[in-house]
Design a binder for these strands. Sequence first.
DNA 1: TAGACGTGGTG
DNA 2: TCACCAAGTCT
Length: 291
Amino acid sequence: MPENPYATPVLAWYETHARDLPWRRPDATPWGILVSEIMLQQTPVARVLPAWQSWMERWPTPADLAAEPPGAAVRMWDRLGYPRRALNLHASARAIVDEHGGEVPREHAQLLALPGVGSYTAAAVASFAFGQRHAILDTNVRRVLARVIDGVQYPPKSQTKAEATTAQELLPPEPAVAARWGVAVMELGALVCTARSARCGECPLAGQCAWRQQGYPQHSGEPRRGQRYAGTDRQVRGRLLAVLRSAEGPVPRCELQRAWDEPIQRDRALRGLIHDGLVDPLPNDSFALPG
DNA sequence: TAGACGTGGTG
DNA sequence: TCACCAAGTCT
């Protein structure tokens, strides 16, 4: 297993440039770290910050959240996006209480079994909350490694086995150092080696970066697929859920109809929300957040 | 394994 | 302005 020639400069850079985020402080609990990781999925730090504060004030432990109906989580989630994450967090809280004595589990496999916790999040919690040695491979790390090692502007569209192998090989032997390395590369990708710009003047790896040495070859091939939103079911679902969140209790169907004109798509979106457990259909043709 | 899944900020 | 992008997961 080759040594990691990037660890020393990246760790030194992190020492002085890491952001002071509440879930990174010494007093952060595993639960707080899990909540942050779920919230941060596809969501910028700036938007997570206030949401995380409110969430942790209201539900400081998994048991606090588990005692509430799932709809309370969905309402609290507000406009963070991908509201099924709120449902997943609630279901995770109940699983943690029911199956782990109210404590966030330490084992990667047990974390992975929680709803909404995939490969990245399980590794992140095991590493950041419990100081274990796991490869962290998120969008930031993938981009940094693609540039520094492979000399390309962007990583492949979907994660490859080769990327996982590389991340594993770069892991420092000491668990505590490995955990530090993981956040540090992520932070480098988030602050310096970003998707839109590469501030190589501030980068501790500028001298050993393949992409830089090769003159920044631009991404060639298919344009990177952008997600459309306007007019999609996702937008309709968002509108419907917004109505239900703003209401105190159940909402009659006619009120939901004002959220979207087109009836076929509106009904399809509503059925989807019900199917996903984000909405409860009630007897008198009204609807509510799940109770 | 693509595609679905929210929302808002930005270059 | 308007694509693109943001600590992914699930099917």
